[in-house]
């Protein structure tokens, strides 16, 4: 037993790579601008990470089970659009009240559930490649939100926004709600991945679907569950997103899917499935947000090169954790 414990906790580069990268970024940020570690900036970065972060936690399960979901960005825009339309439509009958906001939140969760379920069924039951299915739904959700908004922007009723606004901007003991929700999702996700049969089953399916099937795991149902979970987390992220700007348009959530996938991979989850860790994903999300933040705070390089710097850091973070993998 003691031997087991010692082995698991031996600090290895492979495990700590993303964490080291995060620490390096924090040190870099602090040395470039004294406001970097200020309460305001830290809160800003964490809160803005929350949308991608909540989605990326769900994405970790999908990728661990050997899947992929390219539709999450469009899905978020679509869910936000539906949510705004429903809430605006409810105002004449219910008025600007808390129940309208609650019904809007419920709408987001239900819409996310349905969208994820559709993806899951097409992939697991109809057995179409996940890449193709979600590429298709990505286009569908994006065009649906454009259509709902008539090519423009869907805006939440001004008075209702005032009521809903605190969900993004207020918080508990100085910690804003999106950060609290993100932290809860991350902790629950980590527990589910490590200590629930669901997480174990995801890893088994991603590692070898045949073995999973022969081990009495309901592969189809588990796979659908990963997409439904992701869909609902997209709904949850949207609930946090809408009060921020109170609007949704065709440009909402563009490329979120790639950021979420990148965060998952930077965090050490295997892109081909079979192994995933949620805490790594959280680190990955923070790395991505910090890069943007530091580039904005520093203004030492041409903003045209921001993409280059992001790309280099993402690749470096992954190279770092591969460094010693050949030993395993």
């Amino acid at each position: 037993m003691s031997e087991t414990t010692a082995k698991t906790w031996m600090p290895s580069f492979h495990v700590l790579g993303p964490l080291l990268a995060l620490i390096v970024l924090i040190i870099l940020g602090a040395s470039i601008n004294s406001n970097f570690l200020s309460y305001g900036n830290v809160t800003n970065v964490l809160a803005r990470s929350a949308f991608i972060g909540i989605i990326a936690v769900g994405m970790t399960f999908v990728i661990t089970a050997g899947g992929i979901d390219l539709s999450v960005g469009s899905m978020a825009a679509f869910v936000a659009g539906v949510m705004i339309l429903v809430m605006n439509a409810l105002i004449p009958s219910i008025g600007v009240t808390v129940p309208v906001v609650l019904l809007g939140m419920l709408t987001a969760l239900v819409a996310g559930f349905i969208a994820g379920w559709v993806n899951g069924v097409l992939i697991a039951t109809v057995k179409i490649e996940a890449f193709i299915v979600t590429l298709g739904t990505m286009g569908i959700y994006r065009s649906l939100v454009t259509w709902l908004a008539d090519g423009g922007t869907l805006s939440l009723d001004f008075d209702l926004r005032g009521l809903y606004r605190p969900v993004y901007y207020d918080g508990l003991l100085g910690v804003s709600w999106p950060i609290i929700v993100f932290a809860l999702v991350a902790i629950l996700g980590e527990l589910a991945m490590r200590h629930l049969p669901f997480g174990r089953h995801c890893g088994a399916i991603g590692a070898n679907e045949q073995v999973a099937k022969y081990s009495a795991i309901n592969v189809q149902r588990t796979r659908i569950a990963t997409y439904v979970l992701l869909g609902m987390l997209v709904g949850l992220a949207t609930i946090m997103y809408v009060p921020r700007l109170g609007s949704a348009s065709a440009s909402t959530g563009v490329l979120w899917e790639l950021e979420a996938i990148a965060a998952v991979i930077i965090g050490g989850t295997a892109l081909k499935g079979g192994y995933g860790r949620v805490w790594g994903t959280v680190v990955g999300v923070l790395i991505l947000s910090l890069i943007d933040n530091i580039l904005n705070l520093a203004s030492i390089v041409s903003p045209y090169l921001n993409g280059t710097i992001q790309g280099v850091i993402v690749i470096l973070a992954v190279v770092l954790q591969r460094g010693k993998k050949t030993d395993g």
Partner: peptide, 12 residues
Amino acid sequence: SATHGFMGGLNF
């Protein structure tokens, strides 16, 4: 096509 606000207005 109407991919962002300005073009949405233009389409309208």
